[in-house]
Simulated assay, not measured.
Amino acid sequence: MPRRDHADRPPKKPRTRPLKGEEAEVSHIVETHDVSPNQARELVRRHGNDWRKIDEAAKSYKDEK
């Protein structure tokens, strides 16, 4: 079977809609870290499901207030 080269794929566009389950994560971050929903969505976009990084970044948001 020939090997597919990923160079022939178009570049991925940034997501505009949340992934399945992402809104639940956003709600959890908003409740536990007292950040805005937009800030929480940005954290999920940047860090995915790396909760350690999300916690650290959310604390820095709170420090900026």
Rank of each mutant, 00 (worst) to 15 (best):
V35I: 15
D55M: 14
M1V: 14
K20Y: 11
D55V: 08
R9G: 00
L43D: 03
H33V: 04
E56L: 07
R9Q: 01
E31H: 04
L43K: 01
G48Y: 02
D34V: 03
H33F: 13
R52Q: 09
E42D: 12
D50Y: 02
M1Y: 12
K62P: 04
G48A: 07
Y61S: 03
D55G: 12
A7D: 08
I29L: 05
R46F: 04
P37V: 06
R52V: 01
E23Y: 05
H28W: 06
H47R: 05
V30P: 03
G21H: 12
R3P: 08
D55P: 03
R45E: 07
S27M: 09
H33N: 05
A40H: 00
N49F: 04
H33P: 01
P18Q: 03
V35R: 04
P2K: 06
G48R: 03
D5N: 11
D63T: 14
S36Q: 01
H28T: 11
V35F: 01
S27C: 09
A24W: 08
R41F: 05
D34A: 12
E42P: 02
T32H: 12
G21A: 08
R4F: 14
E56W: 05
T16Q: 15
T32F: 07
A58R: 05
S60D: 08
E31D: 09
P37E: 01
E25K: 15
N38R: 14
A40K: 02
T32A: 13
E64Q: 14
Q39D: 14
S27F: 05
Y61T: 14
G48I: 01
R15D: 08
K12S: 05
D55I: 06
I54T: 01
G48W: 00
S36Y: 02
D55Q: 14
K62H: 08
D8N: 01
H33C: 10
P2T: 02
P11M: 08
D63H: 15
D5M: 11
A24R: 07
V44F: 02
E23A: 10
H28G: 03
G48M: 02
A57D: 07
V35Y: 08
R46H: 04
S60M: 04
N38I: 11
R41H: 06
P14K: 12
R9M: 00
R9A: 00
A58F: 01
E64P: 05
R41I: 04
M1K: 13
D63G: 13
I29E: 02
K62V: 05
S60C: 08
W51Y: 10
A57L: 06
R3D: 09
D50T: 03
P2A: 15
K53V: 12
Y61R: 10
K12L: 05
I29P: 04
K13R: 15
K13W: 13
P10T: 00
A24L: 12
S27Q: 11
L19R: 12
D34M: 08
H6A: 06
A7V: 00
D63E: 07
G48V: 00
V30A: 03
A7K: 09
